[in-house]
């Protein structure tokens, strides 16, 4: 039987004491392909930020089993990246080798070859010297996926990988996610398009700060559950009392 790789244990994450993720209990099996869905402000991105350790829990815990935090690959939302920074596509993708190369080890021919291969895989062969800012939105996302490929991670977290991306790129990137799934890697993706979730992701976690439903995608994405999620997120209260749970 598959073992748990990532467990949220009565987890509360938030900003300024306001919970964005509230008392979440959920376990993700090694090798699972999980979609995280929910309305805007439901805490989806916050959950990923907590998992990579850039946000400390307000309560509860995030437990990794059999995996080191440095073995997690994370795709941030495109808006969090400074695309005007003067850096080439090659250098962006090469960041994926951080775990082997770190801050000071020699990059070498082998590194060059691996970066080239990753770029070929995502369809950006020959783009090595291009400044990153001259790429289209879809090409930028392909470059970030090449970086994920090099990270060779067992747990891959994707924050809105397909938002504002052209359909050909979405098709190719979905192919990569399927490949990762076949390779028994664990993939957790924040998504908005429910049709994509239904067609690609066997398991879904529906969040509206609290867990609304979780499990097989078809059961989770029922109209009743989605409606419930929408109403819960709208009920955000600026003057909320202290949670006593």
């Amino acid at each position: 039987m598959d073992s748990t790789i990532l467990r949220f244990d009565n987890l509360t994450l938030g900003y300024d004491r306001h919970p964005a993720v509230h008392h979440l209990d959920y376990a993700i099996r090694a090798g699972a392909l999980v979609a995280v869905v929910g309305p805007n402000g439901a805490g989806k991105s916050t959950l990923l930020k907590g998992t990579i350790g850039s946000l400390a829990p307000l309560g509860g815990a995030i437990r990794l089993t059999g995996i080191d935090p440095s073995e997690i690959a994370y795709l941030p939302q495109q808006a969090e990246i400074d695309w005007s920074f003067p850096i080439s596509v090659f250098d962006v993708v090469a960041m994926g080798l951080w775990r082997q190369r770190g801050a000071s080890r020699r990059f070498g021919r082998e590194g060059d070859r691996m970066v080239g291969e990753a770029l070929d895989t995502v369809g950006l062969g020959g783009f090595e010297r291009r400044p990153i800012g001259t790429l289209s939105g879809g090409q930028m996302q392909r470059a970030l996926f090449a970086r994920l490929l090099l990270q060779d991670a067992r747990l891959i977290l994707l924050d809105e990988p397909f938002t504002a991306i052209d359909s050909a790129t979405v098709r190719d990137l979905k192919g990569l996610i399927r490949r990762w799934h076949r390779e028994r890697r664990t993939v957790v993706a924040v998504l908005h398009d429910l049709d994509q979730v239904r067609s690609e992701f066997p398991e879904t976690l529906l969040l509206a700060r609290e867990q609304i439903a979780a499990g097989p995608t078809e059961d989770v994405l029922s109209p009743a559950n989605l409606d419930h999620a929408r109403r819960l997120t709208e009920a955000f209260d600026e003057g909320a009392a202290v949670c006593v749970r």
Binding site: D82, F85, A103, S104
Partner: peptide, 19 residues
């Protein structure tokens, strides 16, 4: 500091996730 600095400028979330 060169590599961490470049990564921190370009994509701070990524640096925090790997290091």
């Amino acid at each position: 500091l060169y590599r961490p600095l470049v990564m921190e400028c370009f994509d701070p979330g990524f640096l925090r996730s790997v290091s």
